[in-house]
Lab assay of single mutants.
Amino acid sequence: MWEAGIQHIELEKGSKGLGFSILDYQDPIDPASTVIIIRSLVPGGIAEKDGRLLPGDRLMFVNDVNLENSSLEEAVEALKGAPSGTVRIGVAKPLP
C-alpha cells in the first residue's frame, strides 16, 4: 500500500538514463490490475545521487504520461521516450 499523496521529483536525464529499474506488481487493492514499482537504483546513477527515489516507490507518472493503470511496457516506453534533460516523475511512497 502507498500514500495517497504524490511526490513530484525532477531528475536530469543524461545518456545513461535516469538510473533506476521498474517492475510490475499485482495491485493489492485490485488484483485484476498492476502497479509500477521502482525495483532498484543503479549504483552511482542519477536517481541514487538525487536520493529521493527508493525501491518500493510506486511510479505514478513520467512527464505528462499517467502510469496509474499502465502496463510495464507502457511505463518502460514513457521512461525511454522521455527526452534528455529535466524529466518530471511522480511517485507514491509506501505506507510505513
Results as ranks from 00 to 15, higher is better:
residue 1 M to A: 04
residue 1 M to S: 05
residue 1 M to N: 15
residue 2 W to V: 04
residue 3 E to T: 09
residue 3 E to A: 05
residue 4 A to G: 05
residue 5 G to E: 15
residue 5 G to F: 13
residue 6 I to G: 03
residue 6 I to Q: 04
residue 6 I to L: 05
residue 7 Q to S: 07
residue 8 H to F: 13
residue 8 H to A: 14
residue 8 H to Q: 11
residue 9 I to Y: 11
residue 9 I to Q: 00
residue 10 E to H: 06
residue 10 E to N: 12
residue 11 L to P: 00
residue 11 L to H: 00
residue 12 E to S: 12
residue 13 K to H: 13
residue 13 K to V: 09
residue 14 G to K: 14
residue 15 S to K: 14
residue 15 S to P: 11
residue 15 S to Y: 06
residue 16 K to F: 06
residue 17 G to Y: 02
residue 17 G to C: 08
residue 18 L to R: 00
residue 18 L to M: 10
residue 20 F to P: 00
residue 21 S to K: 05
residue 22 I to V: 15
residue 23 L to E: 10
residue 23 L to Y: 13
residue 23 L to T: 15
residue 24 D to G: 04
residue 25 Y to V: 08
residue 25 Y to A: 13
residue 26 Q to C: 07
residue 26 Q to L: 07
residue 27 D to T: 11
residue 28 P to M: 07
residue 28 P to H: 13
residue 30 D to Q: 11
residue 30 D to F: 06
residue 30 D to S: 09
residue 32 A to C: 14
residue 32 A to S: 13
residue 33 S to A: 14
residue 33 S to R: 05
residue 34 T to L: 10
residue 35 V to C: 10
residue 36 I to M: 06
residue 36 I to Q: 04
residue 36 I to R: 00
residue 37 I to Q: 15
residue 37 I to D: 01
residue 38 I to N: 01
residue 38 I to Y: 00
residue 41 L to H: 02
residue 41 L to I: 10
residue 42 V to M: 06
residue 42 V to C: 09
residue 43 P to A: 15
residue 44 G to L: 06
residue 45 G to A: 08
residue 45 G to N: 02
residue 45 G to I: 01
residue 46 I to R: 08
residue 46 I to P: 11
residue 46 I to T: 13
residue 47 A to E: 02
residue 47 A to T: 04
residue 47 A to G: 04
residue 48 E to A: 06
residue 49 K to E: 15
residue 49 K to P: 01
residue 49 K to M: 08
residue 49 K to N: 14
residue 49 K to D: 05
residue 50 D to T: 09
residue 51 G to P: 02
residue 51 G to A: 12
residue 53 L to H: 00
residue 53 L to D: 01
residue 54 L to S: 10
residue 54 L to T: 12
residue 56 G to F: 05
residue 56 G to H: 06
residue 56 G to Y: 06
residue 56 G to D: 07
residue 57 D to F: 13
residue 58 R to N: 01
residue 59 L to Y: 00
residue 60 M to H: 05
residue 60 M to Q: 04
residue 61 F to P: 00
residue 61 F to T: 10
residue 61 F to C: 11
residue 62 V to L: 11
residue 62 V to G: 00
residue 63 N to I: 00
residue 65 V to E: 10
residue 65 V to R: 11
residue 66 N to A: 08
residue 68 E to W: 05
residue 68 E to T: 09
residue 68 E to K: 10
residue 69 N to C: 14
residue 69 N to E: 06
residue 70 S to G: 13
residue 71 S to H: 09
residue 72 L to P: 07
residue 73 E to R: 05
residue 73 E to P: 11
residue 75 A to R: 01
residue 75 A to K: 01
residue 75 A to S: 10
residue 76 V to K: 15
residue 76 V to M: 13
residue 76 V to R: 15
residue 77 E to H: 11
residue 79 L to R: 00
residue 79 L to Y: 03
residue 79 L to F: 07
residue 79 L to K: 01
residue 80 K to A: 11
residue 80 K to E: 07
residue 82 A to P: 04
residue 83 P to L: 08
residue 84 S to V: 09
residue 85 G to S: 06
residue 85 G to P: 09
residue 87 V to P: 00
residue 87 V to A: 05
residue 87 V to K: 00
residue 88 R to Y: 13
residue 88 R to S: 09
residue 88 R to P: 02
residue 88 R to D: 11
residue 88 R to Q: 08
residue 89 I to D: 00
residue 89 I to L: 14
residue 89 I to C: 05
residue 91 V to H: 08
residue 92 A to H: 12
residue 92 A to M: 14
residue 92 A to S: 09
residue 93 K to C: 04
residue 93 K to H: 12
residue 93 K to I: 02
residue 93 K to N: 04
residue 93 K to E: 03
residue 95 L to S: 13
residue 95 L to F: 11
residue 96 P to M: 04
residue 96 P to N: 07
